[in-house]
């Protein structure tokens, strides 16, 4: 299991990386944490002819916070996110999901940007960024643009990034007041990709009624999915157990899992129902706690 030959370019600046990508186009790949790309190359499932190593580009790292959002450099590694004070204080959902990704050694290398650009539909982070209404900043030699998470994930292992574009930054808007979040997944072993994973956010109005709910899924289709109808069904009410059951049923219908060696489609759908209920219950409880209603 040795990779096929390729040319290795250790980019010293973002401009150099972007220029190299223009020059080599689709045959070239950025190398971030390498935790998805290198295994694929060792199996010779991926055989890029050029690798542009972006690991030295400090401008792609780091977590910043402004009044509206936290902004995460694409090269920020999972372990840095796990230890980050902004993330811990303001994006607990991320903190809850990170330990489900692989194992410590892989989290020491893997990057958020690499993960999102890889766009594995079973991966936790795409579903989270989608649920949190994130935006992604793409850069190319000729300019940059923001892409909404909704538009970023196009299919299995496919994103809206053009061949000359690099994912530079991820922006996660601050959660409104009185919001509770929860992430849960079922995997065969801890650290395995999810057979089904659900992220839920519940925002309450000052009277304790549901103002907004978002439900995001990984392992539920060819890309991360939102169950918008299910989420909307809770808005305006007090969110009773039977409301949650009804929403879970709607969510089960909204998703489109394809089954895999470890989970039949029906089992995945079943899990989606169970986890929708559980994450909603927990997010609701947390929202009530943060609103002082608990």
């Amino acid at each position: 299991m040795k990779p096929a030959p390729f040319r290795y370019i250790a980019a010293r600046s973002l401009d150099e990386a972007l220029a190299a990508k223009v020059q080599h186009g689709e045959d070239a790949r950025f190398l971030a944490g390498g935790q998805s790309l290198v295994p694929a190359m060792n199996f010779r499932l991926a055989q890029p002819t050029v690798l542009i190593d972006i690991n030295a580009l400090a401008e792609l790292g780091g977590v910043r916070r402004d009044a509206h959002a936290i902004r995460i450099g694409a090269l920020t590694r999972y372990y840095q996110l796990e230890a980050d004070a902004h993330v811990a204080a303001h994006q607990k959902l991320l903190g809850e999901a990170l330990p489900h990704i692989a194992h410590p050694q892989i989290r020491n290398r893997g990057t958020l940007g690499g993960n999102l650009a890889h766009a594995d539909p079973a991966s936790e982070m795409p579903a989270l960024v989608l649920t949190l209404g994130g935006r992604l900043r793409a850069k190319s030699a000729t300019g940059e643009r923001w892409i909404a998470a909704d538009d970023f994930f196009v299919g299995a292992l496919t994103t809206a990034l053009a061949p000359d574009e690099l994912l530079a930054e991820i922006e996660l808007p601050n959660l409104p007041a009185r919001t509770g979040t929860c992430f849960m997944e079922v995997a065969r072993r801890r650290g395995d990709f999810a057979l089904m994973g659900v992220a839920a956010t519940v925002t309450l109005d000052p009277d304790g009624r549901c103002l907004e709910t978002r439900l995001g899924y990984c392992g539920a289709g060819d890309r991360p999915l939102l169950a918008t109808e299910a989420a909307a069904s809770l808005v305006g009410g007090n969110v009773t157990a039977s409301d949650i059951d009804a929403a879970a049923t709607l969510a089960q219908r909204a998703i489109d899992p394809s089954g895999n060696q470890h989970a039949a489609i029906g089992y995945q759908r079943h899990l989606a129902g169970v986890l929708t209920r559980r994450t909603l219950q927990s997010a609701l409880l947390r929202a009530r706690q943060s609103a002082g209603h608990a």
């Binding site: 290198v38 060792n42 050694q105 020491n108």
Partner: peptide
Amino acid sequence: EHGVCGACTVQLDGLPVRSCLM
């Protein structure tokens, strides 16, 4: 050589990483 077993773990700048994935 695909990042699962951990036998190849070394410390890179102090952090344990898979040496088969670099």
